[in-house]
């Protein structure tokens, strides 16, 4: 069993998916379905890196930020009502600042002008990604499909950028978001989950992408297509078709920018070996 749990694919894919699936089954009828994604992320952290925070490296800061996404989920979803534009903007701003904090020590190694440029770009990227994810999250099928594709994109990009650990985290949140999509497909109805459903996946995937640029060797422009993932899910109107079909079509639409990002990275990178 221990040997099985040391397999990177089991750590990144199977365990986070199963963990999130169990949590999602329990939370399906609540607004807190997004917590299932946090549970899936916590599973990969426990297996791949652990909960030690000495010293506070960029990867460990990523873990902290990812786990702390449960706070806005609890704060926003325990009060009834939709997430307003001001709340979305505030969360996006905090996410952008968190992105700078996570990458701070890397930025400090750069010249001032380059550090400022990279810091502002990182904050804008993460803020834009989170804001658009929250915007589509009002439809939980779109929200979950967005989280699924963002996580997988982050994981694939990190792998191509030569960081398997970051890839594991991206794939894990993708798998966890996939579990929150699957429970809705199986139940045949949308969860009452709020806009924060895929906040954990978007924050973690965004940070994984940023760190793959800053600490590995992913070209920055490979991240740009991922910004289109939340928007691509809006191409499929909600309609009156079965939930499983809507979920499938929505995920398919979000797959297009994912493939674009991965294709871009593929032509400039390749696969790492150790």
């Amino acid at each position: 069993m221990e040997e099985l749990l040391q397999n990177p694919a089991i750590q990144a894919g199977v365990v986070p998916f199963v963990t999130a699936l169990i949590a999602a089954a329990l939370l399906m009828r609540t607004r807190l379905l997004g917590l299932a994604q946090v549970a899936g992320f916590a599973a990969v952290v426990a297996l791949a890196i652990g909960f030690s925070f000495e010293s506070l490296t960029s990867t460990r800061k990523l873990v902290l930020v990812g786990l702390f996404t449960l706070l806005p989920i609890l704060l926003l979803e325990l009060r009834e009502g939709s997430t307003r534009a001001a709340a979305r903007a505030a969360i996006a701003l905090v996410a952008g600042l968190a992105g700078v904090w996570v990458a701070l020590r890397v930025l400090q190694q750069k010249e001032t002008a380059a550090a400022l440029l990279a810091g502002v770009a990182a904050a804008l990227y993460l803020a834009a990604l989170v804001e658009s994810t929250l915007r589509v999250g009002s439809d939980p099928v779109r929200g979950a499909a967005t989280g699924l594709m963002l996580g997988l994109a982050g994981g694939a990009l990190a792998l191509l950028g030569a960081s398997a650990l970051l890839a594991q985290m991206g794939i894990a949140v993708g798998a966890a978001a996939g579990a929150t999509l699957l429970v809705q497909m199986i139940a045949g109805k949308r969860s009452p989950a709020g806009a924060t459903l895929s906040l954990p996946a978007s924050v973690v995937a965004g940070l994984v992408g940023l760190l793959a640029v800053f600490t590995a060797s992913l070209p920055w422009y490979c991240l740009l297509p991922t910004l289109a993932i939340p928007w691509a899910t809006r191409l499929v109107p909600a309609g009156s078709r079965p939930v499983w079909l809507t979920a499938f079509l929505t995920a398919l639409a979000a797959l297009v920018p994912l493939l674009l990002a991965v294709g871009l990275a593929w032509f400039t990178a390749g696969t790492p070996s150790t």
Partner: peptide, 11 residues
Amino acid sequence: RSRDDHLRAAD
């Protein structure tokens, strides 16, 4: 990406 690229990364 080479093995040395991977060794230089956060892993």
